[in-house]
Simulated scan of single mutants.
Amino acid sequence: MMNIFFYMMVEPTYLAVLVALLIVLVSSIFLFKKFFGAKADTVLLIGLSDSGKTQMFSKLINNKSTVITYTSLSENVYEGLLTPSNEELRLIDFPGAERMRKLLSEKWLSKERGSLKQIVAVIDSSSINKRARDVAELLYDTLLESNKKVPMLVACNKQDVGLAKAPHKEFSLINQSRAASLQSTDGSNARASTLTNPEVAFEWSKLPVKVDFVKCCALETDVDDEEKNLTGIREAIGI
């Protein structure tokens, strides 16, 4: 009689434990697939306003198209960009307005990071002398906030204009200034919050993620000159 009573008391507890363990297991599998199993099929175009992102977005979809661009606070999304192997990619043109930086960080560089195949950072090479710091800050923050896991292609746009350059030295200055700021405020480990060791000169090759540069022109002013069309961009993203 005592054995039956004991069994009746223990069995529900045993089942409850099994159910709880099963729930934890299923939840863990779901979270793992969500954060680590997402298909990396998204190409994200970022850049400051007027860098040529939307023109590039349009040309990558249809190289015969011509668009009138304007500053927007909403994403342009194109599903079904085909590669030569018929793989479908999603192309996102993210707004360049500074007020959208928080959404860029929270959505694409954090929550949706697992879906990113590549980030294409479009810069207006013709005005880089005036906006070098702003461009460098955007690239730096994007690499840092994506946890240095997503390959980046820096598209040096508007190569049809004579004064076309890409920012390099600004990264070293940002590394040093941010490290100094962290050390002076709370003594945090500066290396953990900078892209590379701030004590040595910045080098692209020292980054833990691949960053490539390509010269281009979203207007595609010369089909025979790769610096004045989007051939290099198409090859880099595999379309």
Rank of each mutant, 00 (worst) to 15 (best):
A155G: 12
C156M: 15
C156I: 15
C156V: 15
N157P: 02
N157K: 03
K158P: 06
K158V: 07
K158I: 07
Q159C: 15
Q159E: 09
D160V: 08
D160I: 05
V161Y: 05
G162A: 13
L163I: 07
L163Q: 09
L163D: 11
K165Y: 12
K165S: 14
K165M: 13
K165L: 10
A166R: 07
A166K: 10
A166H: 04
P167N: 06
P167V: 08
H168C: 04
H168Q: 09
E170D: 14
E170T: 12
E170V: 10
F171M: 11
S172L: 00
S172D: 13
L173F: 07
L173S: 13
I174G: 06
I174Y: 08
I174F: 08
N175G: 07
N175W: 04
N175D: 13
Q176Y: 14
Q176F: 15
S177V: 06
S177G: 01
R178N: 08
R178Q: 09
R178K: 13
R178V: 07
A179S: 10
A180Y: 10
S181G: 09
S181R: 11
L182I: 06
Q183K: 13
Q183R: 12
Q183S: 09
S184D: 15
S184L: 14
T185R: 15
T185D: 14
G187N: 11
S188K: 07
S188P: 00
N189L: 08
R191S: 09
R191F: 05
R191V: 10
A192Y: 09
S193L: 12
S193R: 10
T194N: 04
L195N: 10
L195F: 12
L195C: 12
T196I: 05
T196Y: 01
T196Q: 02
N197I: 05
P198A: 05
P198M: 05
P198C: 08
P198K: 07
P198Q: 06
E199T: 15
E199L: 13
E199W: 10
V200N: 14
V200A: 14
V200P: 12
A201H: 11
A201K: 14
A201T: 13
F202C: 04
E203D: 11
E203M: 09
E203W: 03
W204N: 02
W204H: 03
S205M: 03
S205I: 05
K206W: 00
L207S: 02
V209D: 11
K210M: 13
K210W: 07
K210L: 13
K210E: 15
V211N: 03
V211Q: 04
V211A: 06
V211D: 04
D212I: 02
F213T: 02
F213Y: 08
F213W: 06
F213Q: 03
V214R: 02
V214A: 04
K215C: 11
K215A: 12
C216I: 01
C216Q: 00
C217N: 10
A218G: 12
A218Q: 04
L219H: 02
L219F: 02
E220W: 02
D222T: 08
V223F: 05
V223I: 05
V223Y: 02
V223D: 09
D224C: 08
D224W: 07
D225M: 08
D225N: 15
D225V: 11
D225C: 13
E227I: 01
K228A: 00
K228V: 00
L230N: 09
L230M: 07
L230I: 13
T231N: 08
G232H: 02
I233Y: 01
I233F: 01
I233R: 01
R234A: 01
R234Q: 03
R234D: 00
E235K: 12
E235P: 00
